[in-house]
């Protein structure tokens, strides 16, 4: 079955690139432009994996991650956090909040797709 990926980022050009990469790898893709949107999409679309940017308007990626992990029904959704802030503290915080992996921007497209595959267990 085709896996579903939700892209949550507010930077339009990065969204375009991620969308392209994920579709090229055969995933069904949906895009959210801010944190609140992302949560709504999680509820409706129920993705297998989220590419979640940390710095988004209205609700940060950390908050989105926390909300998802609070809901028992969403325990199986994989989360990859994306951030342009690459400091150790932020990585630790993301993992502590229940993210499965943490990718710093700019990322290598190959490594990102490989990580997505790995986390989805393919």
């Amino acid at each position: 079955m085709t896996k579903k990926v939700l892209i949550a980022d507010d930077e339009p050009n990065i969204v375009v690139s991620l969308e392209f990469l994920m579709e090229r790898n055969g995933y069904v893709v949906k895009v959210a432009n801010n944190g609140e949107d992302a949560l709504k999409c999680v509820a409706e679309f129920v993705p297998d994996l989220i590419l979640l940017d940390v710095m988004m308007p209205h609700m940060s990626g950390y908050d989105v991650c926390q909300k998802i992990r609070e809901n028992p029904a969403w325990q199986n959704i994989k989360i990859i956090m994306l951030t342009a802030k690459g400091r150790e503290v932020e990585v630790t915080k993301g993992i502590a909040l229940g993210a499965d992996a943490y990718v710093t921007k700019p990322f290598s497209t190959k490594e990102l797709t490989a990580k997505v595959r790995e986390i989805l267990g393919e």
Binding site: I14, V16, M55, A84, K105, P106, F107, S108
Partner: peptide, 18 residues
Amino acid sequence: VSHELRTPLTSIRAFSEI
């Protein structure tokens, strides 16, 4: 500054690789 610089760089790198 790091964030602001990395953001455009991300798009540039991603699309170059694509």
